[in-house]
Write a protein that binds this DNA or RNA. Structure first.
Lengths: 241, 241
DNA sequence: GCCTAGAGGATCGTTCTACAATCCATCAAT
DNA sequence: ATTGATGGATTGTAGAACGATCCTCTAGGC
């Protein structure tokens, strides 16, 4: 039957609502740092700017707040999430549980590692071009593809959300090069172990990897708290100094 | 300072919006089976029944669809999710990754196991009362508390969503007693291992536990497909027979 | 001078109305 | 039996409206 084959294409023609598209736009803006953490997204201004009604915009806001990119305060509005050290710690704990769990369960060489391998070469390319943003993206994509080896749609979506939130966190790193560069090599080593079917070994590497990254970020947060970023000073509280 | 103590109570007075409350009501109804899978929730009827406007109701719908309790089809409306075998498999894969991951990382007796222990005794009570619904609830709560040992808010929320969806899946089990009863004892054994600080051992038990439950559910789904439930027949597709 | 209280403006929360777009059931025609 | 057209019902989105809440700023009391 040809109908069975066509059924697979069905997802392609799933049209999207305006709210979804608005959410996609805002999501990109937030992740790229166009709206820094702490920014308030007023319904009126954003709505008129994008040419959508408040109703539609509010639906988009709801979506993003469920993704933890925005936080909602009743009668005050939507704000771009300001991550804390606790968030970093929690996010990395989750990553260790999920990523290491997936990788550890690998006991024989997986059938298709092309997608994982592609992210490693992407990282190498970005490194050659000295494109640090691209390097960071390739890095995150590596982990996304790692988790995708489990073949679990829900785990994929979970990870996708975690990594989106992590992008927000990375903004505290003043020097993206120093942060992302060392991990490119370690990605390759993990990939090699997986190629050999050594899941537990790869998981052990990955766990160290994640602990190192967490430590770096926690340190960056501590330093940031001592000397907040000069530009915005979006943080609430003491202005002693 | 008394302010520190008061800060803990702050979450209690976080007022909720109407949309949140509506979502809570619908969530309960769906999980309890008042709205069987496949049911369409029309904006008009539900809205007037609950006395809220369409806008507010739509915000509630969005929340629930993000929790996977409802699925949204453009221009067709919101439907109570109809779980498939693939969903069961995916949910259990996720549970194995997360629950076993949390438990395995336990290497010494945790400080506070009271909450986990409470769910085991709750299960025992329910069993004595022959209250199968309560037994199922205690069972799910056991796993929720197990994951809570990791102390990760995000993991808790993730698990809470997974278990809510699972409640939906459990509706295919015609005989809840047979399904839930055997696991009560196994919960106790897992708890004992954790008490002794034997995380890896508990994780191994838990993995078997989850594989068994998955197998039972997959079988139930297969049988259901052969002989769909008499009342609704909400499933789409062939009516051959 | 500092803290408290109140006025005013801005924004949010929610409802209501309205209309175009889309879907679905029905019926007619080939 | 399949295709095509018609019409009703429902969703998608916009927009106005109004009370509720929050924030800022000013005025008053100690």
């Amino acid at each position: 039957m040809t109908t069975d084959e066509l059924a697979a294409d069905r997802a392609l023609l799933t049209r999207t609502s305006t709210a979804d598209r608005v959410a996609a736009i805002l999501r990109t803006r937030i992740i790229e740092g166009y709206f820094p953490p702490g920014t308030r997204l007023a319904e009126d201004s954003i709505g008129t700017a994008l040419g959508v009604s408040r109703n539609t915009l509010r639906e988009a806001f709801r979506l993003l707040s469920h993704e933890r990119l925005l936080v909602h305060e009743l009668n005050r509005g939507m704000f771009v999430r300001t991550s804390t050290v606790d968030d970093v710690i929690d996010l990395y704990q989750m990553r260790r549980i999920v990523e290491c769990g997936v990788v550890r369960s690998i006991t024989s060489p997986p059938a298709d590692l092309s997608r994982v391998a592609a992210t490693v070469t992407d990282g190498a390319d970005a490194l050659r071009r000295e494109d640090w943003r691209a390097l960071g993206t390739a890095n995150l994509k590596f982990h996304q593809e790692l988790v995708a080896l489990a073949g679990s749609p829900r785990t994929n979506e979970l990870m996708s959300g975690v990594l989106a939130e992590l992008r927000l966190v990375f903004h505290v790193m003043v020097n993206p090069r120093e942060f992302h560069e060392p991990y490119r090599e370690r990605n390759g080593e993990i990939l090699d172990r997986i190629r050999r079917g050594d899941g537990p070994g790869a998981a052990a590497d990955l766990e160290k990897y994640l602990r190192d990254a967490e430590e770096q970020l926690v340190e960056a947060f501590a330093q940031q708290q001592l000397a907040p970023v000069g530009s915005g000073a979006a943080a609430a509280g003491s202005g002693a100094g």
